[in-house]
């Protein structure tokens, strides 16, 4: 049972509001080490500086979108153990399918509750303490 406080997270979304909401959710779950990036490219830069255990990323973003970020993460061995949860605005089955192909660890449909966020993270890491 990993401690939520031991998880280093990165939130990637071009929308400030959404980043703030995800951050607030993660904090409520008990995470403390949370970084943010405004698009996939910035997210990748942050990860190369210092890897994270968990990336919660939006799908549609300028520069590098969520799928692109996911592929970049999966192709870089040092980042291979990074769990990626994709945020999607529309219940778009096709999009989620593609993300699964690229190795996404779970997905979350906006708007979400903290309970769902926690549920999805626990589906990846097991129950959090």
């Amino acid at each position: 049972m990993p401690a939520a406080s031991s998880i280093r997270a990165l939130v990637v979304d071009d929308q400030l509001t959404m980043r703030a909401l995800v951050r607030a959710g993660l904090q409520q779950i008990g995470m403390t080490d949370i970084r943010e990036a405004a698009d996939g490219e910035a997210g990748l830069r942050v990860l190369l500086e210092k890897p994270a255990h968990l990336v919660v990323t939006d799908f549609n973003m300028p520069k590098l979108d969520g799928l692109g970020l996911l592929r970049a993460i999966r192709s870089h061995p040092p980042l291979r153990t990074t769990a990626v949860i994709m945020l999607t605005g529309r219940a778009d089955a096709e999009l989620v399918q593609r993300a699964v192909q690229y190795g996404v660890n779970n997905y979350l449909v906006k708007p979400f509750t903290v309970a769902t966020l926690k549920e999805k993270i626990e589906a990846v890491f097991g129950q959090l303490t």
Binding site: P2, K50, P78, A91, A123
Partner: peptide, 30 residues
């Protein structure tokens, strides 16, 4: 995706669980 009550869950997808671990000495400017 036109319906208001769009399903929030999709059937038949399987996701890989992970452990909270990072490679010991990540390459790159880690």
């Amino acid at each position: 995706g036109g319906d208001e009550a769009a399903p929030a869950e999709f059937e038949g997808l399987s996701f890989t669980p992970m452990t909270v671990a990072l490679d010991d000495e990540p390459a790159g400017a880690a």
